[in-house]
Structures are given as C-alpha cells and as structure tokens.
Amino acid sequence: MSHVHDHDADHESVYAGLTGGDDSRWAFGTDFEDPLAGIDTTLPDGVDAAALSQYCLMLGDDALIYSHRLSQWASNAPDLEEDIALANVALDLLGQARLLLVRAAAADGDLVPALPEGSPVPDEDALAFFRDEAAFRNVRFVEPENGDFAVTMARLLVFSTFRLAVMQRLVGSHDTVLSAIAAKAVKELTYHRDYAGRWFLTLAQGTGESRRRLLAALTLVWPLYDELFRTHPVEALLAEQGVGVDPAAVADDVAVLLEQVFSVSGTDRPDVPAAGPVGTGMGRDGMHSEAMGPLLAEMQVVARAHPSGRW
C-alpha cells in the first residue's frame, strides 16, 4: 500500500538549518570546552591532591589508551554491526578518559605539561598529547595492537569485567566527582562486558576455527592479566582515604565472573606465566610495553606540531 506523505515538510526542514541564522542553529551549541562544567570540583577534606591527580590519570589513561586501540577497528570490523558497537565502546571510554583527565588537572595543575604562553590547548589535551610515555599511568594490558576479532573480544571481556568491578566500588568514593564519573561508567561498562561476553561464547562455540582462535587469543592476552590487580602505592593510599579502589580487592570478584563465562563457553583459564615488571616498574609506574611508543607517536603527532593550535 502507498501512503500519502508530507514530502515538502521533510524537504524544507532538512534544508532549513544549513544556511544562515545565528549560532543557535548548531544542534548542541559550539562550546564543549569543559566536560565537568557545572560540577563542584572542590576537593574533599583530608584528600591528598597530588595522589588524587595521579589516581585519576591511572583510570583515565587506561580508558584513553584502550579507546585509541578500539577506534582502530573503524572500517575494519567483520560486519557493520560490530563496527558500530566497537566505536560505541571506544566512545564511552574516551568520554570517561576526558572526565578523568580534567579531574586530574583540577586536582593538581602541576601535572599538566607546560605549553607556550597563551596556548589555547585545554588541560585534557595537554595531558593526552603533550605527556611523554613515562608519564602515562595506564596498565600495559591496554597497549598491545588489537590482533584479530577473537583477541579483541578476549581482551575486552577481561578489561571491561575488571574496570566494571573497580567502578562499581568507586561509586562510593568520597570524591563526588569520581563518584559521578564512576556511576556513568558503570552503565557503559555493563554493556561492554555483556557485548564481549556474548561474543566470547559465540566464538567459543561457533566453528572449529573460531574456537581455535579464541583459545589462542586467551593465551595471548593472559600474561598481562595479573598486573591489573597489582596495587600501586597511590591506589593503596586513596583506598585508605575512601576515595579510590585498591585493584587487588576486586581480583577475586573478577576471577569468579570470568570463570562463569569460561564455564558456559567450555574454556579454561589459561595457564601461562604472568609478564614480569621492567626492573620493579609496570604500567602504573610509567614502565610500558614496546607497543606504547608507536601508539603515542601516532596519537600525539598533530597536536605536538601545533602547541598553540586551536581545534
């Protein structure tokens, strides 16, 4: 059946916004400079500002670097639905990273790299694009190249299960900003974990090839698993102050949840040695994997060429 339709109305409404008018024609305004605008960013009493700032960098850098990796799936996924889903996950993590980097800068401005006098580069970008590798505080788990879809799903399942467990506890933080960021993150990470978990099961039980690839993927991502739960002194201090979460405290919960997925999928927790530290340092100490340097070189190249650039 055919339906009468007000074609002209559609026609006009779409053209109307394209030309002329004032700034209000931009759908959401043009000023997104401060993602924490309107939120009280004063520090709670008795919190070590420098430690809080470092802690925000740890959680923020995990999200920033992993988001960057996942964004590399764009136009490369096995199907359009996966392209869209992976971009969603990357966008959620990028949003979390921005809020956390802004919080880090607000807690301790000394941490923000110095830029030329009068540079309009906002703090979140100074932190993302003008810090050197050793100043990044992310775990090494988020650094490796994506590998195939099985590696990506295995890594995403572990990472989102870990981060969700941390964020669920962080909702109770005495820092109202961290608490608010965590509450938002919990909703997002619940979807990420569900998405990765369903693909994990699908690949484990799909075809012989998908199962073979998934088992190989688990072995590949597992050496960096233990590092997720290693407590850095800053995390220990802030956990004590009721502001942060000690990752060691979520290790058992994460293991139980992953065990459930393994059990349903008919797979085993890999038995491979954990990747050791570099000297005594790991990602949280600024000691990274070889993948980190090229990643940062690419991510930072345009920003660093224009330290006074306006974007």
Partner: peptide, 22 residues
C-alpha cells in the same frame, strides 16, 4: 582517527565515522 589533535574532536570524528556505518 588515530591522530586527531584534541579529545573533543576525536570523540566527534569517531561518532561521525560510526554514523556512516549506521
């Protein structure tokens, strides 16, 4: 996507490329 010089623009570009898939 991997070289966008601001995080805000990176989010915008990622969302745009995602729209195209949609």
């Amino acid at each position: 996507l991997t070289r966008v010089p601001s995080l805000r623009r990176k989010a915008i570009l990622l969302a745009k490329v995602q729209d195209e898939a949609g």
